[in-house]
C-alpha cells in the first residue's frame, strides 16, 4: 500500500473511532439516552473502552494472520483511543454519576472491589499512554516492550471490573471474557506451525 493511500485510511479510521463519542454526545443533546442518561453515558463509555481495548489487542493477531505489517501502524492510535474512552468513562463517573461527591468516590474506591479494580486498570493505562510517543519508544528501548506488555494484565482487570459490576445477569460479561480469552490465547506460542497459504513466506 502506498504511503498516501495508507494515511488516507488511517484518517478514516481516526474519524470512525470518534463516532461512538459523537453518538453519545448526540444522544445527550437530543435526549435519546432514555430516562437515566447519566447511567447510560457511564455504561456505554465503559463498553466502548473495552471494545477499543479488544480492537487494539486484535492488531497483532491480524498482522500474523494476514502477513501484512500495515496493521501495526494503526495500533498506537487505537491504543490512545482506548485511553480516551477510559478517561471519558472515569470522568463521567466522577463528574456526573458521583457529581463530584468525593466522600462517595473515596468510599467506592476503598469498599467496592469492582471500582477499585476499575480505577487500577485506568491508572495502569496512564504510563502506557504517556510512553506512546516515538521519542519515548526510543528512549525506553527494550523496557518499552516490557512496560507495554502490561496491557495484557489491564485487559484482564478491565473485563473483571465489568463482570463484578453486573448485578445478576452475567451473560454480557461472559461474552467479553470469551473474546478476551481468544485474544490472549493468540499470544501463546503454538506447538505446531499452522500454514497460512495467503501469507507470503509461510
Amino acid at each position: 500500500m502506498s504511503h498516501r493511500s495508507f494515511s488516507f485510511y488511517k484518517r478514516m479510521v481516526f474519524i470512525l473511532c470518534l463516532l461512538p463519542a459523537l453518538l453519545l454526545l448526540e444522544g445527550v443533546l437530543n435526549d435519546r439516552l432514555g430516562s437515566n442518561p447519566i447511567e447510560a453515558l457511564v455504561r456505554q463509555s465503559g463498553d466502548w473502552t473495552l471494545r477499543f481495548l479488544f480492537i487494539t489487542l486484535s492488531i497483532s493477531p491480524l498482522r500474523k494472520l494476514t502477513g501484512q505489517s500495515y496493521w501495526i501502524r494503526l495500533r498506537r492510535m487505537l491504543g490512545l483511543y482506548t485511553f480516551f474512552y477510559a478517561s471519558l468513562h472515569v470522568s463521567l463517573y466522577i463528574g456526573l454519576d458521583k457529581f463530584l461527591y468525593w466522600d462517595e468516590i473515596v468510599e467506592d474506591i476503598f469498599e467496592r472491589p469492582f471500582i477499585t479494580i476499575g480505577l487500577l486498570s485506568f491508572l495502569l493505562l496512564i504510563p502506557l499512554a504517556v510512553t506512546s510517543t516515538q521519542k519515548m519508544i526510543r528512549r525506553l528501548g527494550k523496557n518499552w516492550l516490557r512496560l507495554h506488555r502490561m496491557i495484557y494484565l489491564i485487559s484482564i482487570t478491565a473485563v473483571l471490573h465489568f463482570y463484578m459490576m453486573v448485578k445478576a445477569d452475567t451473560q454480557e460479561p461472559w461474552i467479553y471474557i470469551f473474546i478476551l480469552t481468544l485474544l490472549l490465547a493468540f499470544r501463546l506460542p503454538l506447538p505446531i506451525k499452522i500454514p497460512l497459504p495467503w501469507r507470503k513466506g509461510s
Binding site: 430516562s35 437515566n36 447519566i38 456526573l96 458521583k98 457529581f99 461527591y101 466522600d103 462517595e104 468510599e107 467506592d108 469498599e111 467496592r112 469492582f114 459490576m165 448485578k167
Partner: peptide, 19 residues
C-alpha cells in the same frame, strides 16, 4: 447502611442531573 455495590448516602431522582 451502605450496600456492597452502592453507597446509599445519596440518590439520583430520574430527570435530575445532581444528587
Amino acid at each position: 447502611v451502605s450496600h456492597p455495590r452502592w453507597s446509599q448516602k445519596r440518590e439520583r431522582r430520574i430527570g435530575e442531573w445532581g444528587r
